[in-house]
Design a protein around this nucleic acid. Sequence first.
DNA 1: CCTTTACGCGAGCAATTGCTCACATACTGG
DNA 2: CCAGTATGTGAGCAATTGCTCGCGTAAAGG
Lengths: 231, 231
Amino acid sequence: MDKPHLEARKAPKQARSLATVQAILTAGARVLARESLAGFNTNRIAEVAGVSVGSLYQYFPNKAALAVALIEQERERLAVALEAAVASVSDLPLLEGLSRLARLAIEQQFQDPVFAAALDHEERRLPLGTRLASSESRLVGAILQFLEDHREELVPFPDGSPEEVARDLLLITRVLVEADAHGGQGAPPSLHPRLVRALAGYLLAPGVDARSAGPDRHGFRDPQGRESPVV
Amino acid sequence: MDKPHLEARKAPKQARSLATVQAILTAGARVLARESLAGFNTNRIAEVAGVSVGSLYQYFPNKAALAVALIEQERERLAVALEAAVASVSDLPLLEGLSRLARLAIEQQFQDPVFAAALDHEERRLPLGTRLASSESRLVGAILQFLEDHREELVPFPDGSPEEVARDLLLITRVLVEADAHGGQGAPPSLHPRLVRALAGYLLAPGVDARSAGPDRHGFRDPQGRESPVV
DNA sequence: CCTTTACGCGAGCAATTGCTCACATACTGG
DNA sequence: CCAGTATGTGAGCAATTGCTCGCGTAAAGG
C-alpha cells in the first residue's frame, strides 16, 4: 500500500508554529482564489505565506493533505452556516424555507466563485475515502434536519433513503449554482427561482412514482455504439 | 494573446495519417478509461497508440486540443443517442418519456464511469470559450425538442428561458448519475426513480413560484464569516 | 526516375514541481 | 546558562511532462 496518508505530520505546539500553519492555509486559499489550480503548488504557497517550503512540509505530509485541510475548513464553514440557516427557518413554510436556503447557497458560492470551484474540483480528484465524511455528513445532517422540521408538508419518499435525498438536494444545488457562477460575474436573476423550483420539485414531485411510469425494464441502447470499444 | 489555439494543426490527407489520428484518439480514450487523468500525458498516449510523440503533435497543436477532440467526439456520440431517444418517445406521455431518457443517461454514464468522469473533469478545466458550443447546444436542442413534444403537459416556465431550463435538466442528470457512478460499481436501484423525480419535479413543480415564496429580498449572511478574508 | 510533399520517428530540451535534508535559529525546562 | 526540543530555512534533487527539431521513409506526381 503506497496510499499517501493525509494526516497532519506534526501538530504545532507553540504559538509561533500555529501561526505558521494558519499562514499556510490562508495562503493556500488566497492562491486558489486568485489563480485557481494553476498556481496551486507548494513552492508558490509557501512563498505567499511568507514561509519556506520546508516549514510547509513540517505540518503537511504532502500537497494533497494541504488541499484536504483547505476543503475541510471550507466545508466546516459551510456546515455551520447551513445549520444556522436551517434552524432559523424551522418555523417557516417549506417553500419559504427552501427559498432562503437557496439564497444562502447562491451567496456562498458567489462570494468567491473561483475558490469554490477549485475546491470542488480538487475534492473529486483526491483519494479521500472517508476523510471528508465528517464535514460532508454534517451538511447532509443539516438537510435531514430541515426535512424533519417540515415533515408535515412532505410525503414519504418512495425511493431512496432520506440520506440519498438530502445528498441529491446538495448536489443539485451545487451544480446549478456553480454552472451560473462559472460564466458571468453576478448571479443571473433567474438562478434563484430555478434553484427553488428544482429543489421544491424534487421534494414535492406530484404523481411521480417510478411504478407509475410504466414497465420499461428494457432500456435504450445507443444506436451507433462507440466505434472503437474503449477497454 | 498567448491563448493556445485548439484547432487541428494539420489535416490528414492520406489514409495512413487518418489512421494515425484515429489511433491517437482511441489511445487517449483508452488511457483515460484505464487510468483516468493520472496517465493522461502525451508521451503515454503516443506510446499506447503505437506512434511517436512527434506524430501526435503533427495533428494536435497541444495536449488541450487532444482533450477537446476527445470531449467533442464523446459529446457528439451522446447527442446522437439523445436525439434518437427523444424522437422515439415523442408520442409517449411526459413521465414515461422522462423515465426512458433517464435510463439512457444512466446507461451511458455507467458504460465507462472513469472515462466519463475524466472527460467531465477536463471540460471544466479547459479554456473552451465557444469551442464546445456546437455539441453542447445539440444536447440542449434535443431537450428543447423533448419539451416541445410534450408542451401540452407542461405549463410555461415563469422563470428562466427554455434554454436555461434544458441546461438545468442536463446538469441535474449529470451530477446525480455521476455521483452514484463515482462510488459503487453498479447503479443502485434507487438512482433511476430519484433521477426521474428530480427531472419531473423540476418540470412540473406544483405551486412553486418565486413570487409566492414571499418577499425575502434580504438574504442570509453566514454567521461567522471567513476568518481570513480571501482576496 | 526524381523532385516534392506528406508522414513518421524519438532523443532530448526546458520548464515545472513535489519534496528532502543538512543546517540554523528560537524557545523551554531544569 | 545549557542541554534538548521545537521550529524555520532554502538550495537543490529527482521525477515528470509538454513539446521541438533534425532527420529519416513513404507516397504522389510529373
